[in-house]
Design a protein around this nucleic acid. Sequence first.
RNA 1: GAUCGCUUAGCUCAGCUGGUAGAGCAACGCCCUUUUAAGGCGUGGGUCCUGGGUUCGAGCCCCAGAGCGAUCACCA
Length: 510
Amino acid sequence: MQLSEQEEIRRASLQQIRELGIDPYPPELYPVSHLSKEILEGFETDPDDYKTVCIAGRLMQKRIMGKASFAELQDSAGRIQIYVSRDDIAHDEEKTLYNKLFKKLLDIGDYIGVKGYAFKTKTGQTSVHVTELTLLSKSVKPLPIVKTDDEGNVHDAFTDPELRYRQRYVDLTVNPQYRDIFLKRSKLITLMRNFFNEKNWLEVETPILQPIHGGAAARPFETHHNALDIPLFMRIANELYLKRLIVAGFDGVYEFAKMFRNEGMDRTHNPEFTAMEIYVAYKDYIWMMEMVETLIEHIAVGLHGKTALQVGEQTIEFKAPYKRISMYDAINEYGGLDISGMDEAALYAECKKRHIDVDETMGRGKLIDEIFGELVEAQLIQPTYITDYPIEMTPLAKKHRTEEGLVERFELFVNGKEIANAYTELNDPIDQRERFMDQLKLAERGDDEAMALDEDFLRSMEYGMPPTSGLGIGIDRLVMLMTNQSSIQEVLFFPQMKPEVQQKQEEEKE
RNA sequence: GAUCGCUUAGCUCAGCUGGUAGAGCAACGCCCUUUUAAGGCGUGGGUCCUGGGUUCGAGCCCCAGAGCGAUCACCA
């Protein structure tokens, strides 16, 4: 391994630390008593509570002034200045702990622990006066140095997306502002989970490795089970398993599920992504719309304390209820096109006329979907339910109670993007079998997104499935919306990346 | 997949019409007991993404490739 000059120097420092009899990676716990933030916020009003504090974190800056120094210690909650004076931490003749360890051998990035007392410097900054300094873990690789001046200008920012995503640990260390996105992501999931649990719906886990990749239309990742000698697919959806659990007699089941789709990657698509799917018995899609808008409002308030959020250029109002409009009416209202009387040939001609990219493999439903995507989607900024989709593209939803050729389905659009998708679930096993057959016909016609037939799923439905409404929410996209991020990579700790060049070469050697 | 752009020190970036590599931070040495983008003096550090080509001479021009980004198209 080729080491840089600075890496060589840090390894040499490591050796010298050991020679001083100091373990650079001590095993025992460190008795942390406070977070930086607690001291910064609390010292002002209750200075007596901070006469002995013990904090730990990374050393992020050293300002040495001879026999005394200021430094900055960064922990999970933020940064605090520490004051280190020679005679307070070193008591031997040589003042080893200060002159050698602190001044020479500690580097930016090292984990240290300090004990001391909070005080205010003469410029009024709350700091910790160190009386005892402990090295907790030596860093042998230099971090990027990001500095912020008095006016808040960031200097030498660590912004290269490739490095930020590949080395997220560095990103979150030197760019602590991004931590908030992930804290909000976690909180959002907790808010949803608590919301569902209060209603006594059951959180479940269903198979990721599936013999048939059903429940959605997408190309799967394929793998192989050695002992059974069969192919298995990483799930592209979990819908058919959750419905089996509704058949089994649970009133409500939900799962936060990683899905895997072997398709393109860009700023809104990652090969693995998180969906939340929920199925509730004895409900329909109208009930589900009320549930979803209550949930989304609850999330906005839980994360931000308010319902109106700034997303990009737009201010979005998440307060329920949301506008509801059928797909046909939306195409008419937003696109000025009445498709209610059009057959497949007329729709195809209309697409061609408008230069919408279509081909002969597309059935009526798919053509309408294309028109909708082209004419309407981008205009749906405020939360809007689009309801009642063509039957052809929705093989798992129940036929509409009054409208011929439609199903009871809605999608929730916000800021021009789909956030949620829900149905009154099809529970008629004879109809369900016919729908799968129609999908097979579409597949024969060349539609590679047509859905595969799952005999065991049909068998479960034949035993009897209660009327049910089901919902899927793209968690990554919801987090993007709620944290005002425009790329999925910013809301995933470890977005999928191409292998690093260095690794590739090493693999080729093997 | 298409078009455009980027890739130079550990990090952030300059580098003119082609003439042999620069700054700030970081590092190293020295000074400094209330600094805060700490400061002062000094020092070291580079396969200029890779491989070809043109040229007396390439970080710069040409060709091919890689990685990354932006925009567009498709999937959630």
